[in-house]
Amino acid sequence: MSKKPYEPPVQSGAGQFFDSLVVLVLVYASLMAPLLFKEAPQAPADAADKPAVTWESLNQTPAMVEQWEKLGVDIKAAEPMITNRFDYSIEPVSLAITVLVIVGYFFFVLRTSEREYREVIRERFGPAKGD
């Protein structure tokens, strides 16, 4: 026996407006908010006591210094650019969480899609043999 095609409800204009707002809220809450509330890098505490920085102490060769100067970047501006480095230490817990989140996400999406896909095929082509 063939099932009747699914007839979706008609969404009102207000409902569509509300759904558009939900998308915007999700975009801004999950992507924009972490950027805006990200901690600014701390300035060094005892900047006054620090010995004067030289290009040599920053491991810059004369050729490099020449290019920095041509680019209009003085040693004060160059120092944080040279000394701020990425920390590539791997924390097992955070790495495990990240892997779980990515794998779990694809698992959820693929599993739910499979269920939905069967509905689509059944409606488009009719019930499969044995249904």
């Binding site: 998308v23 999700l26 975009v27 999950s30 992507l31 972490p34 990200k38 955070s94 969480i97 990240t98 989140v101 990515i102 996400y105 959820f108 999406v109 739910t112």
Partner: peptide, 15 residues
């Protein structure tokens, strides 16, 4: 890593 998790949060919530 934080950006990676925040975008995953977006796609999970919206899914």
């Amino acid at each position: 890593g934080a950006s990676l998790l925040s975008i995953m949060a977006f796609y999970i919530l919206i899914s």
